[in-house]
Amino acid sequence: MLTVVKDIKNQLKVTCISIKYALMREMINKASFLMNIIFMILNNSCFIIQWIVIYSLKSEIGGYSFKQILLLWGISASTYGFAHFFFKKSFSLSDTITNGKLDSFLVQPKNVLISAITSEVEVSAIGDMIYGYILLFLSDINIFKFVLFTLFTICGGIVITDFAVIFASLSFWIGKSDTVADTANDLITNFSTYPDGIFKGLSKILLYTIIPVGITTYIPVKMLTEFKISLTAIVIVMSIILTLLTFGIFYKGLKKYSSSNLMISKI
């Protein structure tokens, strides 16, 4: 038991150093570092105009008030930002696998998946996170909501990462699958910025199951408006289960890893 705790401590330490070093690399050029963050905030702000126009036509959309839409956008942006900042490489993991770039992580005595996905950070994702919190402050905020929002950001960010890793892991079996993974990741981003109330039937069921937007965004928004311990627990439990599943799939695939020997020969 003690060794497990020590293992986790050491893993966390290495992960933190890795992220710190990756951030340092991005900060070499200060001007472009800041510009990336600021422009991402501006970029996201553009969508407020979309919702101002829509709410000028109708006072509620899919059961959401304008303030709730801000919260929806806030949660979407911060979960996206969290995942892309800390785990940037999970969104191009398919390339890492097919180009044999897992080698250097495989010879280190640390978790391969964690090392691989934390080896780079996305600077603009800092802008996404900041934007998420700005929107939170624009809605009714108190300490409890702030903590809850942060909790959902972490859970949601991890779920988005899990989803990306699962799709990227397909590369172990079928070779290049980056387009499949990109398509799947865009799916989450697109759905998570619209209220679930506008969807009906099958699409709504999908959003709470296979496409995990329900867990990453819809339930969190409801919890921030009207807190329920049971649904919050479901979000946490689901994120843990999905993460375990992700590690399982990745490590199962790793047995099929072919380093840089995977080639497609043309006749």
């Binding site: 050491n10 290495v14 150093i17 070093y21 690399r25 010879v107």
Partner: peptide, 29 residues
Amino acid sequence: IGTVFGQKEQLWMHLTVYDNLKFFGAIYD
């Protein structure tokens, strides 16, 4: 074991040699 792959870098390019070695120290606890 230790490994060196001539065609693949394991070092962080933007860090000093010293910082790199400290990173590897942390990796091996």
